Amino acid sequence: MSTSKLFLCLFFQFTFLVFVFNPANAQGLKVGFYAKSCPKAEAVVKDVIHQVMSVAPSLGGPLLRMHFHDCFVRGCDGSLLLDSPTKQAEKDAIPNQTLRGYQIIDRVKTAVEKACPGVVSCADIVALVARDVVVELRGLSWDVETGRRDGRISNATETFGNLIGPTANISTLVNGWARKGLSVKDLVVLSGGHTIGTSHCSSFNERLYNFTGKGDADPRLDSEYMEKLKLKCKPGDQKTLVEMDPGSFKTVDESYYTLVSKRRGLFQSDAALLENKETRDYILSQAGKSFGSFFKDFGVSMVNMGRIEVLTGKSGEIRKVCSRVN
């Protein structure tokens, strides 16, 4: 075979491999998907979120969490946003009942529809909002791949087995994330999203009062931190909110990893990260730093998560209103 023919053969093989194994290409996502069809889309989203976060920064955590909860059930298709007259949609499931900020997504959608009717999906809006709230709370930006379309099905029962709860052990965490195509590093990096937001006492109450069913506490939890939590959360408390990252729950930073390294992670799933070498090593590498690799890593892992089981091309639809199908 001549040198030129060999080069062409290798070139086409390489091109084929890139096409097949690059998830973004295979799924039809790309940065700047709306550059021609709605060039102002991302600017409109950014402007609305800036307005919201300037007066209600506590919504940052819930809006970021919304992207997680959407992607882990049926993929990143906006199915979490759908209403059900019989209260049987994803948002009605127990793990999603504490989510807030749907009205903000609706506000963004209204603004985007005004600029470009019927062009930008609700699924993409959720992804863009997640990025923009992180930036507003002093995190670094990243390029969001867009091109998702909206799903038409939302079923509360599908949250079970897909959404991984705060009591998960390390095996459940690693395996659950692997089923979504996410790595162990993605797991520990995106767990860093707990740097912002609050949680109801009910999500960790048993760690304080009934860890093994015998009225005991989780021995993995720092005793001093546990006593502070007990002052805020009484047995059976379902309503009180507690900061996930005390002192900086409205700021994206690496203090989450410092807390976890000191056995002060709020959830059992936080404590579990110290039981795996890869996740523990990452935690220790970020703990105590003012500006480590977490900021950059977070954007990379968010892109990875945003590729889960997306609908593109002619699949799904572009909803006119995010809470109902067209």
Results as ranks from 00 to 15, higher is better:
Met66Trp: 09
Leu81Phe: 08
Asn96Gln: 03
Arg74Tyr: 15
Cys71Glu: 04
Ala89Leu: 04
Lys91Gly: 08
Cys76Gly: 02
Glu90Phe: 05
Met66Val: 07
Glu90Gly: 01
Gly78Ile: 08
His67Asp: 05
Asp92His: 09
Phe68Pro: 01
Phe72Asn: 00
Ala89Thr: 02
Gln88Trp: 08
Ala89Glu: 05
Pro85Trp: 12
Gly78Leu: 09
Ala89Val: 02
His69Thr: 08
Lys91Tyr: 06
Asn96Arg: 15
Cys71Pro: 01
Asp83Ser: 06
Asp77Leu: 11
Asp70His: 04
Ala89Pro: 05
Ala89His: 01
Asn96Ser: 04
Ser79Thr: 04
Ser79Asn: 02
His69Val: 14
Ser79Gln: 05
Pro85Val: 01
Ala93Glu: 02
Ser79Gly: 07
Asp83Asn: 10
Val73Lys: 02
Cys71Ile: 08
Ile94Arg: 03
Glu90Lys: 03
Leu82Arg: 10
Leu80Cys: 04
Val73Ala: 01
Gly78Lys: 14
Pro95Gln: 05
Phe68Ser: 06
Val73Ser: 02
Phe68Tyr: 06
Met66Thr: 07
Leu80Asp: 01
Asn96Phe: 08
Thr86Ala: 13
Lys91Pro: 08
Pro95Trp: 01
Ser84Asp: 08
Gly78Met: 13
Ile94Phe: 11
Leu81Glu: 09
Pro85Asn: 03
Thr86Ser: 06
Gly75Asn: 11
Leu82Trp: 13
Cys76Lys: 09
Lys87Val: 15
Val73Gln: 00
His69Arg: 15
Pro85Leu: 09
Asp77Ala: 15
Thr86Gly: 10
Asp70Val: 12
Cys76Ile: 03
Glu90Asp: 07
Ala89Lys: 00
Phe72Met: 01
Asp77Gly: 07
His67Arg: 15
Thr86Trp: 12
Leu82Cys: 04
Gln88Glu: 10
Glu90Asn: 08
Asp70Thr: 10
Val73His: 03
Asp92Pro: 00
Met66Lys: 13
Pro85Cys: 11
Leu81Tyr: 11
Pro95Gly: 01
Leu81Ser: 07
Phe68Leu: 10
Asp77Val: 11
Pro85Thr: 06
Pro95Lys: 02
Leu80Gly: 01
Gly75Thr: 02
Gln88Ile: 10
Asp92Lys: 07
Gly75Leu: 06
Asp70Gln: 09
Ile94Thr: 06
Ser84Met: 08
His67Tyr: 12
Leu82Ile: 04
Val73Tyr: 04
Lys87Ser: 03
Glu90Cys: 11
Pro95Thr: 03
Val73Met: 00
Pro95His: 10
His69Gln: 05
Val73Glu: 00
His67Thr: 13
Gln88Pro: 04
Val73Gly: 06
Phe72Asp: 02
Leu82Ser: 05
Lys91Asn: 09
His69Met: 13
Ala93Leu: 00
Gln88Ala: 14
Pro95Ser: 02
Gln88Phe: 15
Lys91Ile: 01
Cys76Glu: 03
Leu80Tyr: 02
Ala89Asn: 00
Arg74Leu: 07
Cys71Asp: 06
Gly78Tyr: 12
Cys71Thr: 06
Met66Arg: 13
Ala89Arg: 01
Asp77Lys: 12
Gln88Asn: 09
Asp83Phe: 12
Leu82Pro: 00
Lys87Ile: 14
Arg74Asn: 10
Lys87Cys: 09
Gly78Phe: 14
Leu80Ile: 05
Asp70Met: 11
Leu80Phe: 13
Cys71His: 07
Val73Thr: 12
Asn96Met: 06
Ile94Ser: 02
